[in-house]
Design a protein around this nucleic acid. Structure first.
Lengths: 222, 222
DNA sequence: CCTACCGATCGGTAGG
DNA sequence: CCTACCGATCGGTAGG
């Protein structure tokens, strides 16, 4: 009896954008030209509709930004609230959060990209930055706990370790593109190796139980 | 370019900005508001002069960008051309380039920040991106060489290792601020530990790097 | 002839 | 979702 949101749009009224498909296009343009550098006219011409039509869906440019970065933030917060991130040794929880964050980053690449480029010039941007800082603090607490449990090196400050770890993770948005032969799981495997055990080869150290010898996880470069 | 900004200009004509001191202010504003989001009027009011006066020094906004990113790029290329980056084991050369790049990043933080935020919307931006890619290729070659020499782990693709390594390095601009108790050398020391040996504590491995006796790495000068 | 600007205004385009 | 607009501001240039 009650039609779903997509149902309603397709049955009644003109065919056109719903909020989700509009956001998908808007985020792509924001990432190409920068949020500040994108005019509502840019968005309208890319969407194939007029500027005013956009205001049918959202109150303005800032709401487009808010809805977009919240989509990324909601999924990242969901990760740290999953049971695997809440119990067990902190080092395992940290690895879990890292792997799941990479999955979110890959699945929602344009939205996470936009989130990471927010600078804080407007209210919506400052709101996004505040939520980011809250996420960073949760991760930082996890790193600190892992250090006090003795599973993370004690000769580097936990806050610094946390920043470098997620700095490396976030940098993935700069070059990762799907459909280039590197899956999210292969990427996460390689990332965890580099981050947790370093890029140096250590012939004297015992290898982890049967690291798959078949694939090297080559990312088809460029 | 070691003379004080106002020294040279104080002899003839009005006291005012020379190109260097103008760039210092311009880059700061670009980083605050974004390059696209910065108007010439923004720059003028921050400088305390009129818009027209800026055109006395440069041909336009794009030239301000070009001069700024070239300052960062020139120093980064200088690093890979230093003798310590040209001879010896590739792993040592890589560590040297990492330490010196961190020193450049810290010394020229606003200029490197601007460089890393360039997106390619204008000709000057695309030119900067091309030079960045050239630098990245030099580093990537070094990582590949270190892997073929057996000093870097073989179970991760060198191009991927290189991207993660410099992704982590570049992320320093997001949070590092001078005068907060973390010197560039301390930062580089911690960075090299995390990047080369990983964040995991390894009670079974010797504390000091065992495989290569002698030096632990080049102290990067700064 | 130089350096270092000023006050005013150009044709177009921004978000709403 | 469109047409017809607004107040303001954009990057850049004129003569002095």
């Amino acid at each position: 009896m009650t039609d779903g949101p997509a149902e309603r749009a397709s049955r009644r009224g003109r065919p056109g954008y719903d909020l989700d498909s509009l956001l998908t296009v808007a985020v792509r343009v924001f990432n190409e030209r920068g949020y500040d550098g994108t005019s509502m006219e840019d968005l309208a011409s890319r969407l194939g509709i007029t500027k005013s039509a956009i205001y049918h869906h959202v109150a303005g440019k800032e709401e487009l930004l808010r809805l977009s970065v919240d989509r990324a933030l909601d999924q990242l917060f969901a990760v740290v609230n999953e049971p695997e991130a809440q119990r067990g040794p902190a080092i395992d929880r940290l690895e879990y959060v890292v792997r799941r964050s990479i999955a979110v980053l890959v699945d929602e690449l344009p939205f996470v990209t936009l989130l990471l480029r927010v600078r804080g010039n407007t209210a919506a941007e400052r709101r996004a930055l505040a939520r980011r800082r809250e996420f960073d603090r949760l991760v930082s607490d996890l790193v600190e706990r892992a250090e006090s449990e003795g599973s993370i090196r004690r000769d580097v400050d936990p806050a610094l370790t946390s920043r470098l770890l997620f700095g490396m993770l976030n940098s993935i948005i700069e070059w990762y593109r799907p459909r280039r032969g590197l899956t999210a799981v292969d990427l996460a495997d390689a990332f965890v190796k580099i981050a947790f055990d370093g890029l140096r080869s250590r012939p004297d150290a015992p290898l982890s139980p049967a690291p798959d010898p078949g694939q090297t996880g080559s990312p088809a470069g460029a």
